[in-house]
């Protein structure tokens, strides 16, 4: 296989400070290796994630997104992660409507103690998105504006 055709997915991970960020730190302390495709953005709680952050990340070239926080019942803020879930339930159909394959956004729970689970999760997301291929939906949508062919907008995510 030719070198240049090898697709490396670009993943953005929105992590809560208390659980998953600390879990990722633990993976580091344990020198547990994982795929380097992820860029982490830290927030106090996954409940504070505005869905538009995710859209923006796709616009900036992300092929996949991981949102990861505390286990249900363990949220540092009692119920933040639960709100994150609910918001996602509303947001998901919207994504599909926009032609973004919802598989490109993954949710997980990784506690501060689960360095190993962080490694599995991130490798899992990278592999899933690698199989889906690059995300081109946004470029296509942008392209609609310039050449009003309309085709791209309806074809949606090819992945």
């Amino acid at each position: 296989m030719a070198e240049e055709t090898k697709f490396e997915p670009r993943i953005v991970a929105f992590l809560c400070n208390w659980c998953t960020y600390a879990g990722a730190d633990l993976a580091g302390t344990g020198r547990n290796q994982y795929q380097a495709n992820v860029r982490v953005i830290k927030l106090p709680c996954t409940g504070g994630i505005d869905p538009l952050f995710l859209i923006k990340a796709f616009e900036r070239g992300a092929d996949g997104i991981l949102v990861s926080g505390c286990h249900p019942g363990d949220c540092h803020y009692n119920s933040g992660n639960y709100h994150a879930r609910r918001r996602w339930n509303v947001f998901r159909p919207l994504l599909e409507f926009c032609g973004i394959n919802p598989e490109r956004i993954q949710f997980s729970w990784v506690s501060a103690a689960e360095g190993g689970k962080w490694v599995e999760t991130i490798n899992g997301v990278v592999d899933t998105v690698r199989a889906l291929g690059p995300f081109e939906g946004y470029q296509k949508i942008n392209a609609v504006g310039s050449d009003a062919s309309g085709e791209a907008a309806t074809s949606g995510d090819t992945g």
Partner: peptide
């Protein structure tokens, strides 16, 4: 306590979380 739930919920973008604002 600074979870930011309110900021993510606000429809008029009137709430911001200090240190992690939009």
């Amino acid at each position: 306590q600074g979870c930011g739930l309110c900021a993510a919920t606000c429809r008029s973008k009137s709430v911001e979380l200090e240190g992690f604002n939009d």
